[in-house]
Amino acid sequence: MTTHYLVLSALLFAIGGVGVLVRRNAIVVFMCVELMLNACNLAFVTFARQHGNLDGQVIAFFVMIVAAAEVVVGLAIIVTIFRTRRSASVDDANLLKY
C-alpha cells in the first residue's frame, strides 16, 4: 500500500508542477504550489506509517503551518500587484527582468 500512496503523491506533485509552468494567473499558480505542498504532506504521512514513527506527521503539521503563513503573505503580494497594475497575470510583473 505504501507504494501506492507514494505514487499518488508523486502524481499530484507532478500535476502541480505542470500547473505552475503552464498557468498565467498568479492565483492559480499559487493554488498549484499548494497542491505540491499537499502532495509532499501525503508522502510524509505515508512514511510516518511505513516507519512506525510519528515524526513524519509532525513534519507534515509544520508544513501546514508554513503553508498557511505563505498563503497569507503571497495573497497579500498578489493583491498589492493587482492594485498597482490592474492585472493578476504573472507575465505582466516583469520589471525585475531588465
Binding site: 500500500m1 505504501t2 507504494t3 507514494l6 505514487v7 508523486a10 502524481l11 506533485f13 507532478a14 500535476i15 508542477g17 505542470v18 509552468l21 510516518a48 506509517r49 511505513q50 516507519h51 512506525g52 514513527n53 510519528l54
Partner: peptide
C-alpha cells in the same frame, strides 16, 4: 511534467519497500 511523474513513479516502484510497521 509527464517525464517527472514517470521518473518518480518508476523510482518509487523500483525501491524495496517492506511491509509498513504501522503506528
Amino acid at each position: 511534467g509527464l517525464g517527472f511523474a514517470v521518473l518518480l513513479a518508476l523510482g518509487i516502484g523500483n525501491a524495496f519497500i517492506g511491509p509498513a510497521k504501522g503506528l
